[in-house]
Amino acid sequence: MPQDKPLNTSRVKLTQKQYQQLVSERQPKVPVLKRALRAFVSGGLICTFGQFLLETYMDVFGMTRDLASSATTATIILIGGLLTGLGYFDKIAAFAGAGVAVPVTGFANSMVSSAMEYKREGLIYGIGSHLFGLAGSVIVYGVVTAFVVGLIVSLVS
């Protein structure tokens, strides 16, 4: 437990914890319900559009379900990436929040935004090493989880 300390001033007679308590009480509150509703609708719409792509790829292009599913994911990634490159994604995300961050659009956005940002540091140390700057943790924890889960499932069955 970190120790509670007084502030470095005699003018505010509160400890750090008491002051933080005051701040969190006074802080303007996040409109949780409103933001959740926006995320629900925008995330739902992206998935509905994805479903449309999925069925189009299967019915019109005659792809198998697995192939069509991969193609859908790739298409949505491309759209998310392009919107980021064109500078619209951050504005959409300011409204939709997790609605565009949780679908793979968010994965694409984190890769493109980070790569573009560091572009001026060069192709290798800029784009190359920063592409996964934000998205990397998703891959790391996904892979480690998959390994552990796979191991347990193999041992159990």
Partner: peptide, 13 residues
């Protein structure tokens, strides 16, 4: 904080 084009919401404060 984050890259300029990274999509996220900022807290109201």
């Amino acid at each position: 904080r984050y890259p300029v084009e990274y999509g996220m919401q900022r807290p109201p404060y």
